[in-house]
């Protein structure tokens, strides 16, 4: 088991990517989850389906469409170019956007489940005590839905680390920018460097096991509703 400098660089890049994606997703997914948990709109069904699409679609499909959409002729590409940001494929931020799409359901759904589990009564009680909507969110919803947020954080992070198909499609394997651990393992296997592939894969297996162990130990302690995700 020996990791080269190149391998270490991919590990750091992967951790940086997963952290960035998780933080951004928590900010972005919370309002979505809140809306899905509380709305009575007819659009709830279609919206839930859109959020869940990445669960079903093969990453190659997502990757291919993101490559086209974020390219110079695609809608997202034209938008980012108009902003003077250039195009996103082959950049770290391109991977961030793609990973956010890919990991979206893993963050939205646990949060949504735990908000739904709170129900209306605590919120109504808070309202009668004079708490406004924002106050209610931070003093009632956030503490009560904390297990859901924990699950969302762990799953979002772990799922981004395990991402491969999309990164391969839009990454371009640039060291320090888009070459993450999963791509590096793939490259090692393709280049017949099986010993190095083993070493890095071993790290991934240990990491994944520890993350899932954390998740399930945490769930057992909490026995919280809406935490059965992934069982």
């Amino acid at each position: 088991m020996s990791l080269t400098d190149g391998d270490m660089a991919t590990i750091w890049l992967t951790l940086r990517l997963a952290t960035t994606v998780t933080i951004l997703l928590l900010i972005f997914a919370t309002p979505v989850a809140w809306w899905l948990a509380t709305t009575k709109s007819w659009f709830k069904g279609p919206m839930s389906a859109i959020v869940a699409l990445p669960l079903v679609l093969p990453p190659t499909v997502l990757g291919f469409y993101l490559l086209l959409a974020m390219g110079p002729n695609g809608a997202i590409g034209q938008f980012t170019q108009a902003l003077g940001l250039g195009t996103l494929p082959f950049t770290f931020w391109g991977l961030v956007v793609a990973s956010m799409v890919y990991s979206l359901p893993f963050v939205v759904q646990p949060i949504q489940n735990s908000i739904e589990a709170i129900g209306n009564r605590p919120l109504e009680a808070a309202a009668t005590l004079g708490a406004g909507p924002i106050d209610r969110f931070f003093t009632v919803v956030l503490p009560l839905a904390k297990p859901g947020f924990m699950t969302a954080t762990i799953l979002g992070f772990a799922h981004t680390v395990g991402e491969f198909g999309i990164v391969l499609m839009i990454g371009g394997s640039i060291p320090g920018e888009t070459r993450v651990v999963s791509v590096q393992i793939y490259d090692h296997v393709e280049a017949l460097e099986y010993a190095q592939a083993h070493a890095l894969s071993g790290v991934m297996i240990v990491f994944s096991f520890v993350v899932l162990l954390m998740l399930y130990t945490f769930q057992r302690k909490r026995k919280a509703v809406g935490m059965t995700y992934g069982r």
Binding site: F64, L67, G71, P72
Partner: peptide, 15 residues
Amino acid sequence: GENIAQTYQFVSSGN
């Protein structure tokens, strides 16, 4: 690209 087919894709998609 990890192979020549993917390299083709990078160019054909205009990226």
